[in-house]
Write a protein that binds this DNA or RNA. Sequence first.
DNA 1: CTCACATTTGAGTGATCGCTCAATTTGATG
DNA 2: CATCAAATTGAGCGATCACTCAAATGTGAG
Lengths: 197, 197
Amino acid sequence: MTRNPPYDRDTALEAAETLFRHKGYHATSLKDLEVALNMRPGSIYAAFKSKENLFLLALDRYARKEQASLACQLEEGQEALQIVQAHIRAIAAEWAAEEFGGCFLVNTLLEVTPEQDTIRDRAQTLAREVQSAFRDTFQHAIDAGELPADTDPAALAQWYQMQVFGLRVLCSMTLNCADIIDAAESVAQSIENKRAA
Amino acid sequence: MTRNPPYDRDTALEAAETLFRHKGYHATSLKDLEVALNMRPGSIYAAFKSKENLFLLALDRYARKEQASLACQLEEGQEALQIVQAHIRAIAAEWAAEEFGGCFLVNTLLEVTPEQDTIRDRAQTLAREVQSAFRDTFQHAIDAGELPADTDPAALAQWYQMQVFGLRVLCSMTLNCADIIDAAESVAQSIENKRAA
DNA sequence: CTCACATTTGAGTGATCGCTCAATTTGATG
DNA sequence: CATCAAATTGAGCGATCACTCAAATGTGAG
């Protein structure tokens, strides 16, 4: 009954995610969103309540995708350590291909001011969840005997997330291509060195 | 002759630096600056030309301080590797003391949009200069025999800067205090492990 | 076809943005 | 003390911000 929305909600969210990821929260105006979502202000507010809420939904979407990607590859039976190594190499490759918008979570963590409690808290929570996904992956590696049994998966996950963070900021410096790939490769090598003998 | 400014230029710049470092470029309004600098809009524009130019000056001031700190400690004759280890520990300590505003350069690199060429380019240049300062410090360590003679100081500097970047983003996640200190300590330990035998 | 209602529309809200400039204040000089 | 140039002042500029709502529009049911 009655009229149906002409747009697909998830398609709109994807457009918002891309826009916010590239421009950040403050620099993205409703005018930008109107163009990207192909929606008029009234529709945007009817569908997503506010700019802030739309941002939160886009952030969730991004983080869920990151986690799902890891979980999915595990279920496909890929070797856990190789998944992680491919993950860090993919970041460098994405940057080299100039499709780089950075990590939405990292961008948000560093952009948000102390006043914006809601966004800040959400970004922190999601970042911790991503770290947990890394931990689960390393746990998988331990169970499969890829890593020594006495490895601390949580500590390793935090170390790895820090490497990812570092690489992502390094990408923002736009050094030459080889340097970024070397940096990613060096992290992959560090992971290789942790393998059970 | 004639009237003198009632404010000290560098004091004003320091206030601007602190404000921009904590709130970022977009979220800082002229009203905020008026309060922090205790200057009226006309004076701000007479002295600093524009919000963007004031931001660039503040960014320069921050980066120059970082570089000077390293160079100064070297001149005092401190051991190069200990300077670097103290540097990474200081980041964790600053965060633990809740005086954390993050690194102005990192914040800027990740906040700035592709359109803001001027700010982006400056931040990238300054970040590269800081990396050079790290490289000089490591070169010092090589010359002093603290590191093996075949160490590549530029590669080591980039690795170290990536660790600093990673730690700074980790700080923005507000994990518990011990985790941050552990992460910093682990970087310090990695440096220790590179010492010449 | 008509009605009921979910949905879109877009001009317009008040607030705030970065910024300007005519008027005023200040202080060193003669 | 009078002069004058440098500097501050703050009301207010046009533009843009996030957002609203009365009116127009599309759609499924009867």
